[in-house]
């Protein structure tokens, strides 16, 4: 510690003082920007504003024709949304229970089909033929306005 301490005096050479003050002021300003910028970015909501995806908009009304299906992303895994002949929406997890391939809708058979090893599921998700050992998990479907919302129960 310095042995002789005095309160600040005003009679310093202007140039040195102002250089140091500019340096300090500029540095502090940059630091404040460096703190405020991440904070503002943090406060702005990200693209997907929710942490837990227990529901997802799988499609819009009219996206699907009767007797067709489409794959949508549900969290980390795929889901399949099917519009049946009788205009009923059904949704299942689309990961085949055999070796985790993604299943697809077969309009010709009106069944869910896994192309990898020819596994079949009926429109209740039940494994009916081929290697799949278990049914597909079924999700709830609700039509909210224009959106077809799929939820995990």
């Amino acid at each position: 510690m310095n042995s002789s301490i005095k309160t600040p005096a005003a009679n310093q050479p202007i140039s040195r003082r102002s250089f140091l003050d500019y340096l300090l002021g500029g540095g502090l300003l940059a630091l404040v920007v460096g703190i405020v910028y991440p904070v503002l970015r943090f406060v702005m909501p990200p693209e997907l504003p929710e942490a837990v995806q227990s529901s997802v908009v799988a499609a819009k009304v009219g996206d699907l024709k009767p007797n067709s299906g489409r794959i949508f992303r549900f969290g980390k895994g795929p889901g399949i949304l099917i519009l049946t002949d009788s205009s009923e929406y059904r949704a299942f997890g689309a990961t085949c229970t055999h070796l985790s391939c993604t299943v697809q809708y077969r309009a010709d058979l009106k069944e869910i089909w896994c192309a990898c090893h020819n596994g079949y599921y009926d429109l209740n998700g039940k494994n009916i033929s081929g290697p799949p050992p278990r049914p597909l998990p079924r999700y709830n479907v609700a039509v909210r306005g224009d959106n077809i919302v799929v939820t995990k129960s």
């Binding site: 991440p38 904070v39 943090f42 702005m44 693209e47 997907l48 929710e50 942490a51 837990v52």
Partner: peptide
């Protein structure tokens, strides 16, 4: 939600 903060929110990992 913590995983979400750490992965989705900008600078969430830092905060």
């Amino acid at each position: 939600s913590v995983a979400f903060i750490a992965s989705q929110v900008p600078f969430g990992w830092l905060i």
